[in-house]
C-alpha cells in the first residue's frame, strides 16, 4: 500500500505584475515549475527521485512539507495516510511536519542554527512533537547521535554546528529528522557535500531505518549510482516532469526513455568506451520546446514529438503500472540496439 500518493502535482510561480525584468512570458502570468507529477511511495521502501539540476526535485519535496518558497503555488493532490496535504490547514500541518514527515535538506550548514548547541536543536524537535520531559529529550538526543555513529555523543551535544565536520553536521540533521520516528523521511541530496566513505555510512543508516523501523524514504539525488544501490523504485525527472518511473533493476536493465538512456550513458564506466551523454543542455522553465520537453535534445525525436506532449504511459512487462515512460517511441525503442540516430 502506498504511504504517499501524488496525483497531478503542479507547481507554479506567480510573478508580480511589475516584475518586468524576470525572464520569459508576460508580466503577471505564471511560470510552470513542476508539471502534473503522479507517483506513489510505498510503505517501508526507498523511492529514488533523480534528475539534473533545476528539474524541480527540491520544489517537489518542499511541496510535500507545505513549505514552498514565496510565490510558488501547488495544485493537484498529495495524499499522505489518507489526508490531502495540499488542503491541510497550517495548524494541522505543523503536527505532521517534523513528526510524521521530516526532511534532511541539501545544505546542512544553512539549515542548522549556528548560535545554538546541536544537542539543544535536536531536543527542540523532540519537545515540539513528543510528550516527554526535558531530561528524556536530552537523553534521546545523545542516544540518537550514538545510533548515528557519532563518537563521544555526550560531548558533541554541547558543541555548536561550526565545531563539527560536514559529515557530523549532516548526521545531526539526520538525528533531528528521525527523532520522532517519521513514517516518511525526505532526504534531499543528503550526501552531496560528503566524502565517499562518510556517504556510504549515511546511506547504510538510511537503509537500516527502512529495514528496522519500516520508514519510507524519498531519496533525492542526481547520482544514479546512489539510486541503484539504495532504492527500490526510481523516478527520473526532466524539466519539471516525470519522464520515467520503474523498479530499480528494470530501469537499469531496460530504460524506456531517451533521457534516462542519456543519463546512463553519461556515467563513466568502461575505460575506452566513449561516453554518450545527452547533447545540449536543460532548457529554462520558460523556454521549453513544444510537445515533448526533451525533443530538442533527443537523438530519436521525430516530427510527432513536437506536436503534443506524450502521456506518462505504462511500458515494459512489470505490470500494474510500475514501469512508465513519457515517450511515443517506446514500441520500437530505437535506443535499445545501439542504432543511434533515427
Amino acid at each position: 500500500m502506498s504511504l504517499l500518493s501524488m496525483r497531478d502535482l503542479s507547481i507554479n510561480l506567480a510573478r508580480a505584475p511589475s516584475s518586468g525584468k524576470s525572464p520569459g512570458g508576460s508580466a503577471g502570468s505564471s511560470i510552470n515549475m513542476v508539471n502534473s507529477l503522479t507517483l506513489d511511495i510505498p510503505e517501508g521502501s526507498v523511492f529514488g527521485l533523480a534528475g539534473e539540476s533545476g528539474c524541480g526535485k527540491s520544489l517537489t519535496a518542499l511541496s510535500i512539507l507545505g513549505i514552498l518558497p514565496r510565490g510558488m503555488h501547488a495544485t493537484g493532490e498529495v495524499t499522505f495516510k489518507g489526508r490531502d496535504l495540499l488542503k491541510m490547514d497550517e495548524k494541522t500541518f505543523r503536527s505532521v511536519r517534523g513528526h510524521e514527515i521530516s526532511m534532511v535538506f541539501q545544505e546542512p550548514m544553512t539549515s542548522l542554527n549556528p548560535v545554538l548547541k546541536v544537542g539543544y536543536q535536536i531536543e527542540e524537535v523532540i519537545n515540539t512533537h513528543l510528550a516527554v520531559s526535558k531530561k528524556e529529550a536530552a537523553h534521546m538526543a545523545v542516544s540518537l547521535l550514538r545510533e548515528l555513529n557519532i563518537p563521544s555523543p555526550e560531548q558533541r551535544v554541547r558543541e555548536y554546528p561550526h565545531q563539527l565536520s560536514g559529515g557530523m553536521r549532516q548526521r545531526v540533521m539526520m538525528a533531528m529528522a528521525i527523532a520522532c520516528s517519521p513514517s516518511l523521511l525526505i532526504a534531499d541530496e543528503p550526501t552531496t557535500a560528503l566524502d565517499v566513505t562518510i556517504e556510504a555510512q549515511l546511506l547504510r543508516m538510511i537503509r537500516r531505518l527502512r529495514d528496522d523501523k519500516g520508514m519510507s524514504v524519498l531519496l533525492i539525488t542526481h547520482d544514479l549510482g546512489i539510486i541503484a544501490e539504495n532504492a527500490e523504485t526510481v523516478a527520473i525527472m526532466y524539466a519539471g516532469r516525470l519522464v520515467e518511473q520503474a523498479p530499480v533493476a528494470e530501469l537499469f536493465r531496460a530504460p524506456m526513455h531517451p533521457y534516462t538512456v542519456g543519463l546512463l550513458g553519461s556515467v563513466p564506466a568502461q575505460r575506452g568506451t566513449k561516453l554518450k551523454p545527452v547533447r545540449g543542455m536543460v532548457p529554462k522553465p520558460w523556454e521549453l520546446p513544444a510537445g515533448c520537453t526533451f525533443s530538442d535534445r533527443c537523438d530519436f525525436a521525430q516530427e510527432a514529438c513536437s506536436a503534443a506532449e506524450p502521456e506518462f504511459m505504462e511500458v515494459g512487462d512489470s505490470g500494474a503500472g510500475r514501469h512508465r515512460s513519457r515517450c511515443i517511441r517506446t514500441d520500437d525503442a530505437p535506443w535499445r540496439n545501439g542504432n543511434n540516430k533515427s
Partner: peptide, 16 residues
Amino acid sequence: AAPELVPGRKKEPPLQ
C-alpha cells in the same frame, strides 16, 4: 564506498 550503477549491490560501508 564509491557507488556503482549496479542495482541492489548493497554492500556494507567498510569504514567507520
